[in-house]
Every structure is written in C-alpha cells, then in structure tokens.
C-alpha cells in the first residue's frame, strides 16, 4: 500500500498515543458511564430498583392514583401520572445517569443511575 509508506515510525507512535488519548477521554468526560438502573421511589422510599436491561411497565400507587412507569433497555420514562401538570410525563425518556423525573403530586420519582454516582440529579 503506497499510503502506508508515508507513515514514519514515530507517526505510528503519535497515532497510537492519540488513539489512547481518545480512548481515555471517553470515561473521563462521560463519567457515570451508561445508564444502569432505574430507581423508582414512592414517598421517598425505594419502591423498585430495576435493571435497565429489562423491558417492563410498573404501576406505582400514590395518593392520587397510579403512576405508570415504563422501563426499556437503557432508558425509562413516566408513561402516565394522575398529577395535574404532567411535568414528569412531558420529560420523556430518561437515558443519562443522574436524570430524574419527579411526579410531585403523586409523590413518585424515577431516577437513572450509572456505575458511578457523579451527580445527585440532572434535570432540564
């Protein structure tokens, strides 16, 4: 291959070093890694702690009624909630560690956690 002849020995070194740098930057900047588990709380008590590899729906009873939470591989969301303003439903899918959807009126929350705990919570 003619292009390979253009590489000099040190170039490979720099290329490898650069590759290592890129590789290292991934865990460094994407701390917390991938979403691992969804923690569902009711009245502040852990109601369910679900592995984000499964696919299921969970009904969480609260003072206003049932909050329906859907868990899919790598993400979770509040499907329906009896609360008046529907903030937690509108938040949509939660995918990054630390993200949380809080259905305050019904006192239910869903939080995503990763391997390492970086932030208490992330909301937008």
């Amino acid at each position: 291959m003619r292009w390979l002849a253009l590489f000099r020995p040190g170039d490979w070194l720099i290329l490898l070093g650069g590759g290592a740098l890129v590789g290292l930057s991934i865990p460094m900047f994407w701390q917390g890694g991938l979403a691992d588990r969804a923690i569902i709380r009711q009245e502040g008590q852990v109601f369910a702690d679900i592995d984000l590899k499964t696919r299921k729906q969970i009904e969480v009873p609260g003072p206003l009624g049932n909050t329906l939470i859907a868990v899919e591989p790598g993400r979770a969301r509040v499907v329906s909630d009896p609360g008046p303003r529907q903030y937690c439903v509108k938040q949509g899918w939660l995918m990054r560690p630390g993200e949380i959807a809080i259905c305050a009126p019904n006192r239910v929350s869903v939080q995503i956690t990763g391997r390492t705990k970086v932030y208490d919570s992330i909301s937008y």
Binding site: L6, F7, R8, P9, G10, D11, L13, I14, L15, G18
Partner: peptide, 14 residues
C-alpha cells in the same frame, strides 16, 4: 522533532 522519525502525519495529528 527528529524528521527521520516524525513526518507530516505526526505534525498533522498534533
């Protein structure tokens, strides 16, 4: 850097 070892590719990546 020594030219014999580090060519344009190194400079470009850096």
């Amino acid at each position: 850097l020594p030219v014999r070892w580090f060519g344009p590719v190194s400079l470009s990546i850096l």
